[in-house]
Nucleic acid binder design. Structure first.
Lengths: 135, 135, 135, 135
DNA sequence: TTTT
DNA sequence: TTTT
């Protein structure tokens, strides 16, 4: 009836972009969300799977990479499925409605180097990726 | 770094109360959280596992039952473990910090009948179960 | 950049419905949100103004009344204005995107008596008021 | 009964630190929270007052300054009071339970220059300021 | 100004 | 009154 989750964390790797048979873009990535740990090094994290659709999926795939800091707002979805060994499994994933970029892409984090001349410009706006931005 | 989830849903069954070896109470239950479905009957839900500790665990175990409507606030925790067939699994559960009762216990929902003369009084207060209430 | 508020509380009075010059419906009401108070009677509350637009506005105006329990999700908006004495004031209000009914209308709370034969049916569904419901 | 707000925004100025007569630290600051605006420059913001207590107050006062990006979690509180002209006013403020630093202090933003050799170390941890950190 |  |  009500299902709202808000996360801040860092991507563990580049988003993976696919398309449904009907052409809808879907992006998946994992967020490392540090637990508020004590200070003596036992820094733990929850690794939370994120799914996002449509334009937001494309923006994430184009502009996010490993290590980037984002805020995600969405809902927690539990899916039940059978893996390819026929084992019944449950998948938990956050369906993101908004993904907000909280840091700039550093050189080292860019996905392969050239070609993203406008990335910094976008990232510096720190606006919601599902705004009516020109992607 | 930041991990906050808020759910409103109904318990699918009575909470299960256990104690850790050191005596800490832990309660587990599952929440059916309806997705905002269309109207032609395809009412779906996410079934989300909730864990709660200490006094909140005891209050939930004592006063909640199948069908009760609650609001839960907490954080999403992902645990990796091996089941008793030796299969690697991931468990997603919400560690509840607050559980708020949103309806009264109906007669039919009371957990076995006698003994809870004060339940309705409590439930009608609709206060946070981890308030300094007299349990 | 990110602004999300979630409230559960009771309406202090019936919503007030107006229309902008261009015909857009706007409803306003106030929510009494109890603070998690101690138990010796000093029950305090925050009285928080809610604004909602479009179809949600009309549904709230038609189906909510004084005392009803709702969950509201939206964003906090701060407006600066001059009152009719020319005094500069700041208004804080929550722009609600979703309003969820958490209890049923009791007879005494119905807004004027007859005519709402379907209210209980709706309220009992506890669905989001901005679903594609037939209002 | 339930009152939770989550904000991400930038400080409009340095926090102001005071102490109650009994010695409790209180810090106040204002957050500029951009609305998700269109792109043609009409970038608007809500200016939201934040209050925080105890150790969090001291950490904010010591380590935050104008322009810093933070995430705040707390509850919305509405207070009614009379100003020094005897005019009845309402104040809306967010009582922050956690304040999370989302960027590093830049040289230009440090509050007066020397003395905070450890600031970057702290800020880079991006941990909750009310963790059991040694302040 | 206020709800249960 | 305001931040980037």
């Amino acid at each position: 009836m009500f299902n709202r989750i808000i996360l801040i964390g860092r991507l563990t790797r580049e988003p993976e972009l696919r398309y449904t048979p009907s052409g809808t873009p879907v992006a998946k990535f994992t967020l490392a969300v540090d637990r508020r740990a004590g200070r003596q090094g036992e820094r733990e994290a929850d690794f939370i799977d994120i799914v996002t659709w449509q334009k937001t999926a494309e923006v994430c795939a184009n502009y996010l990479g490993k290590g980037r800091l984002v805020a995600v707002e969405g809902r927690l979805q539990i899916r039940s499925y059978e893996d390819n060994q026929g084992i019944r499994r449950k998948a938990a994933e956050v369906v993101a409605e908004t993904v907000k970029f909280l840091d700039r892409a550093k050189e080292a984090q860019q996905q392969g180097g050239g070609g993203f001349g406008s990335e910094d410009d976008f990232a510096s706006e720190i606006s919601f990726v599902d705004d009516d931005t020109p992607f």
